[in-house]
Amino acid sequence: MLIGLNLSILAFASEGGGSIIDVNPGVIFWTVVTFVILMFVLKKVAWKPILTALDQRENSIRESLEKAEKAKEEAEKILLENQEKLAKADEESKKLVHKSREYAEGLKEQMLKESKVQAQKIVNDATLEIERQRETAFEELKSQVAEIAVQAAEKILKENLNKETQKKIADIYINEITKN
Protein backbone atom coordinates (compact mmCIF):
# COMPACT_ATOMS: atom_id res chain seq x y z
CA MET A 1 0.00 0.00 0.00
CA LEU A 2 1.13 3.45 -0.82
CA ILE A 3 0.98 6.45 1.42
CA GLY A 4 1.22 9.79 -0.31
CA LEU A 5 -0.60 12.33 -2.31
CA ASN A 6 -2.00 10.80 -5.41
CA LEU A 7 -3.93 13.17 -7.52
CA SER A 8 -5.39 10.62 -9.87
CA ILE A 9 -6.96 8.78 -6.99
CA LEU A 10 -8.28 12.05 -5.59
CA ALA A 11 -9.88 12.72 -8.94
CA PHE A 12 -11.38 9.27 -8.91
CA ALA A 13 -12.80 9.82 -5.44
CA SER A 14 -14.56 13.03 -6.36
CA GLU A 15 -15.64 11.54 -9.63
CA GLY A 16 -17.00 8.40 -8.05
CA GLY A 17 -18.85 10.36 -5.42
CA GLY A 18 -22.19 9.64 -6.93
CA SER A 19 -25.21 9.08 -4.82
CA ILE A 20 -25.08 8.24 -1.16
CA ILE A 21 -27.46 5.34 -1.68
CA ASP A 22 -25.39 3.70 -4.35
CA VAL A 23 -25.07 0.06 -3.42
CA ASN A 24 -21.61 -1.19 -4.23
CA PRO A 25 -21.83 -4.96 -4.79
CA GLY A 26 -18.15 -5.35 -3.94
CA VAL A 27 -18.82 -3.90 -0.50
CA ILE A 28 -21.74 -6.29 -0.01
CA PHE A 29 -19.50 -9.17 -0.99
CA TRP A 30 -16.74 -8.15 1.40
CA THR A 31 -19.14 -7.36 4.21
CA VAL A 32 -20.78 -10.76 3.92
CA VAL A 33 -17.38 -12.46 3.82
CA THR A 34 -16.11 -10.38 6.73
CA PHE A 35 -19.20 -10.88 8.79
CA VAL A 36 -19.43 -14.61 8.22
CA ILE A 37 -15.76 -15.11 9.03
CA LEU A 38 -16.10 -12.82 12.04
CA MET A 39 -19.10 -14.77 13.25
CA PHE A 40 -17.40 -18.14 12.98
CA VAL A 41 -14.14 -16.93 14.45
CA LEU A 42 -15.93 -15.24 17.33
CA LYS A 43 -18.09 -18.30 17.83
CA LYS A 44 -15.01 -20.44 18.20
CA VAL A 45 -12.81 -17.96 20.01
CA ALA A 46 -15.27 -16.05 22.16
CA TRP A 47 -18.92 -16.95 22.26
CA LYS A 48 -18.57 -20.63 22.91
CA PRO A 49 -16.12 -20.35 25.82
CA ILE A 50 -17.85 -17.29 27.25
CA LEU A 51 -21.34 -18.77 27.05
CA THR A 52 -20.25 -22.11 28.45
CA ALA A 53 -18.44 -20.31 31.24
CA LEU A 54 -21.59 -18.30 31.96
CA ASP A 55 -23.69 -21.44 31.91
CA GLN A 56 -21.22 -23.17 34.15
CA ARG A 57 -21.26 -20.32 36.57
CA GLU A 58 -25.03 -20.05 36.55
CA ASN A 59 -25.30 -23.77 37.13
CA SER A 60 -22.79 -23.68 39.92
CA ILE A 61 -24.61 -20.76 41.51
CA ARG A 62 -27.92 -22.55 41.17
CA GLU A 63 -26.46 -25.73 42.55
CA SER A 64 -24.82 -24.05 45.45
CA LEU A 65 -28.00 -22.15 46.21
CA GLU A 66 -29.94 -25.38 46.13
CA LYS A 67 -27.32 -27.01 48.26
CA ALA A 68 -27.42 -24.16 50.71
CA GLU A 69 -31.19 -24.38 50.82
CA LYS A 70 -31.01 -28.10 51.43
CA ALA A 71 -28.35 -27.66 54.07
CA LYS A 72 -30.45 -24.99 55.72
CA GLU A 73 -33.46 -27.25 55.75
CA GLU A 74 -31.43 -30.06 57.15
CA ALA A 75 -29.93 -27.81 59.77
CA GLU A 76 -33.37 -26.62 60.73
CA LYS A 77 -34.56 -30.18 60.98
CA ILE A 78 -31.60 -31.10 63.11
CA LEU A 79 -32.13 -28.04 65.23
CA LEU A 80 -35.76 -28.97 65.73
CA GLU A 81 -34.78 -32.51 66.56
CA ASN A 82 -32.16 -31.31 68.95
CA GLN A 83 -34.58 -28.99 70.58
CA GLU A 84 -37.03 -31.83 70.96
CA LYS A 85 -34.34 -34.04 72.34
CA LEU A 86 -33.19 -31.34 74.66
CA ALA A 87 -36.72 -30.75 75.88
CA LYS A 88 -37.14 -34.47 76.42
CA ALA A 89 -33.84 -34.70 78.21
CA ASP A 90 -34.77 -31.72 80.29
CA GLU A 91 -38.03 -33.30 81.21
CA GLU A 92 -36.33 -36.55 81.96
CA SER A 93 -33.74 -34.94 84.11
CA LYS A 94 -36.40 -32.98 85.92
CA LYS A 95 -38.29 -36.16 86.46
CA LEU A 96 -35.17 -37.86 87.64
CA VAL A 97 -34.34 -35.09 90.02
CA HIS A 98 -37.87 -35.11 91.30
CA LYS A 99 -37.82 -38.83 91.75
CA SER A 100 -34.50 -38.83 93.47
CA ARG A 101 -35.60 -36.02 95.70
CA GLU A 102 -38.70 -37.94 96.58
CA TYR A 103 -36.64 -40.99 97.22
CA ALA A 104 -34.24 -39.04 99.35
CA GLU A 105 -37.09 -37.50 101.20
CA GLY A 106 -38.57 -40.89 101.80
CA LEU A 107 -35.26 -42.27 102.86
CA LYS A 108 -34.73 -39.39 105.18
CA GLU A 109 -38.10 -39.80 106.74
CA GLN A 110 -37.66 -43.51 107.08
CA MET A 111 -34.27 -43.13 108.59
CA LEU A 112 -35.57 -40.52 110.92
CA LYS A 113 -38.40 -42.76 111.93
CA GLU A 114 -36.15 -45.69 112.33
CA SER A 115 -33.68 -43.79 114.36
CA LYS A 116 -36.45 -42.43 116.50
CA VAL A 117 -37.73 -45.92 117.09
CA GLN A 118 -34.25 -47.09 117.79
CA ALA A 119 -33.67 -44.27 120.15
CA GLN A 120 -36.94 -45.00 121.88
CA LYS A 121 -35.99 -48.60 122.11
CA ILE A 122 -32.60 -47.74 123.50
CA VAL A 123 -34.21 -45.46 126.02
CA ASN A 124 -36.73 -48.11 126.91
CA ASP A 125 -34.06 -50.74 127.27
CA ALA A 126 -32.02 -48.40 129.31
CA THR A 127 -34.96 -47.63 131.57
CA LEU A 128 -35.73 -51.29 131.98
CA GLU A 129 -32.14 -52.06 132.75
CA ILE A 130 -31.97 -49.24 135.21
CA GLU A 131 -35.14 -50.50 136.81
CA ARG A 132 -33.84 -54.00 136.97
CA GLN A 133 -30.51 -52.94 138.34
CA ARG A 134 -32.16 -50.72 140.85
CA GLU A 135 -34.33 -53.63 141.91
CA THR A 136 -31.43 -56.01 142.27
CA ALA A 137 -29.50 -53.37 144.05
CA PHE A 138 -32.43 -52.75 146.28
CA GLU A 139 -32.87 -56.44 146.88
CA GLU A 140 -29.22 -56.82 147.72
CA LEU A 141 -29.35 -53.80 149.91
CA LYS A 142 -32.35 -55.19 151.68
CA SER A 143 -30.76 -58.52 152.30
CA GLN A 144 -27.55 -56.89 153.38
CA VAL A 145 -29.42 -54.52 155.64
CA ALA A 146 -31.29 -57.47 157.16
CA GLU A 147 -28.10 -59.36 157.64
CA ILE A 148 -26.39 -56.38 159.12
CA ALA A 149 -29.36 -55.83 161.39
CA VAL A 150 -29.35 -59.43 162.48
CA GLN A 151 -25.62 -59.30 163.08
CA ALA A 152 -26.00 -56.07 164.94
CA ALA A 153 -28.82 -57.53 166.95
CA GLU A 154 -26.78 -60.60 167.56
CA LYS A 155 -23.91 -58.47 168.63
CA ILE A 156 -26.08 -56.40 170.92
CA LEU A 157 -27.72 -59.47 172.21
CA LYS A 158 -24.42 -61.16 172.84
CA GLU A 159 -23.11 -58.19 174.72
CA ASN A 160 -26.21 -57.31 176.86
CA LEU A 161 -27.91 -60.59 177.44
CA ASN A 162 -26.80 -61.49 180.99
CA LYS A 163 -28.75 -63.27 183.58
CA GLU A 164 -30.57 -60.29 185.01
CA THR A 165 -31.69 -58.96 181.71
CA GLN A 166 -32.70 -62.35 180.55
CA LYS A 167 -34.74 -62.72 183.64
CA LYS A 168 -36.26 -59.29 183.18
CA ILE A 169 -37.25 -60.09 179.59
CA ALA A 170 -38.58 -63.42 180.54
CA ASP A 171 -40.60 -61.72 183.19
CA ILE A 172 -42.06 -59.21 180.78
CA TYR A 173 -43.09 -61.98 178.40
CA ILE A 174 -44.56 -64.02 181.20
CA ASN A 175 -46.49 -60.99 182.35
CA GLU A 176 -47.90 -60.40 179.04
CA ILE A 177 -48.90 -63.98 178.59
CA THR A 178 -50.58 -64.00 181.92
CA LYS A 179 -52.44 -60.84 181.21
CA ASN A 180 -53.87 -62.51 178.15
Binding site: M1, L2, I3, G4, I9, A13, S14, G17, I20, N24
Partner: peptide, 20 residues
Amino acid sequence: LQEVMDSHKIDFEPFGFLNL
Protein backbone atom coordinates in the same frame (compact mmCIF):
# COMPACT_ATOMS: atom_id res chain seq x y z
CA LEU B 1 -21.16 13.35 1.32
CA GLN B 2 -17.59 12.62 0.37
CA GLU B 3 -16.73 12.48 4.03
CA VAL B 4 -19.41 9.94 4.90
CA MET B 5 -19.33 8.03 1.63
CA ASP B 6 -17.15 5.13 0.76
CA SER B 7 -13.98 5.70 -1.21
CA HIS B 8 -10.87 3.91 -2.31
CA LYS B 9 -8.54 5.78 -0.05
CA ILE B 10 -8.25 6.48 3.62
CA ASP B 11 -7.77 10.16 4.26
CA PHE B 12 -5.37 11.30 6.93
CA GLU B 13 -5.61 14.96 6.04
CA PRO B 14 -3.36 16.89 6.34
CA PHE B 15 -0.87 14.03 6.52
CA GLY B 16 -1.78 12.46 3.19
CA PHE B 17 -3.75 9.34 2.55
CA LEU B 18 -3.57 5.61 2.18
CA ASN B 19 -4.48 4.07 -1.14
CA LEU B 20 -6.43 0.86 -1.11
